[in-house]
Amino acid sequence: MYQPAFNKIHHIAIIAADYEKSRQFYVDILGFSIIRENHRPEKGDIKLDLKMNEEKEIELFIKSDAPERLTYPEAKGYRHLAIKTTNIEEDRNYLISQGVKVEEIRQDEITDRKMLFFYDPDDLPIELHE
């Protein structure tokens, strides 16, 4: 019997509202490189494909009229993006120096690893997990 091999995530899709702020955040601050940029007037958006690493991409859909998130953070759907890191203290200091909204470092109650949340220009939560 066939069993699919779903064992890796290819990309994560994020909807943003402001091209300049989102591009500056994801490219200049987080360091993801642009693979492709497509202006799609028929869809009313700009799509940036960003390279996170050799295996993962982020599809950033920039749509100025996108509705706000309904509740925070517990609406149905994906809750947040989590990024693995090896030096959460230095990462936190860097993000703060870039003017990014960052929470305090805390211990994950299940894994006992250090973690924190920071927020993109649309106030979407991103987790750093050590």
Rank of each mutant, 00 (worst) to 15 (best):
Y2W: 02
P4D: 07
A5K: 14
F6T: 15
F6C: 15
K8F: 05
K8W: 04
I12L: 06
I15V: 15
A17K: 08
D18S: 04
E20V: 09
E20Y: 07
K21C: 03
S22V: 07
R23H: 03
F25S: 07
D28S: 09
D28E: 06
D28I: 02
I29V: 06
L30F: 01
G31I: 05
G31V: 06
F32C: 13
I34M: 01
R36Y: 13
N38Q: 12
H39P: 14
H39K: 15
H39N: 15
H39G: 14
D45N: 13
D45E: 12
I46W: 10
I46R: 09
L48H: 02
L48R: 04
D49I: 12
D49S: 11
N53Y: 02
K56T: 10
E59H: 12
L60P: 04
I62N: 00
D65I: 07
A66C: 09
P67Q: 01
E68N: 08
E68W: 11
L70A: 11
L70M: 12
Y72V: 10
A75H: 13
K76N: 02
Y78S: 14
Y78V: 14
A82M: 01
A82Q: 01
K84F: 12
K84A: 15
T85L: 03
T86M: 15
T86H: 14
N87L: 09
E89V: 10
D91E: 11
D91L: 08
N93M: 07
N93Q: 09
G99T: 00
G99K: 00
G99P: 00
K101Q: 05
E103I: 13
E103D: 11
Q107I: 15
D108H: 08
I110R: 01
T111H: 00
M115D: 06
L116R: 06
Y119N: 10
P121S: 13
P121D: 11
D122A: 04
D123Y: 08
D123S: 06
L124Q: 01
L124N: 01
P125C: 10
I126P: 02
E127S: 01
H129L: 05
H129R: 03
H129M: 04
E130P: 03
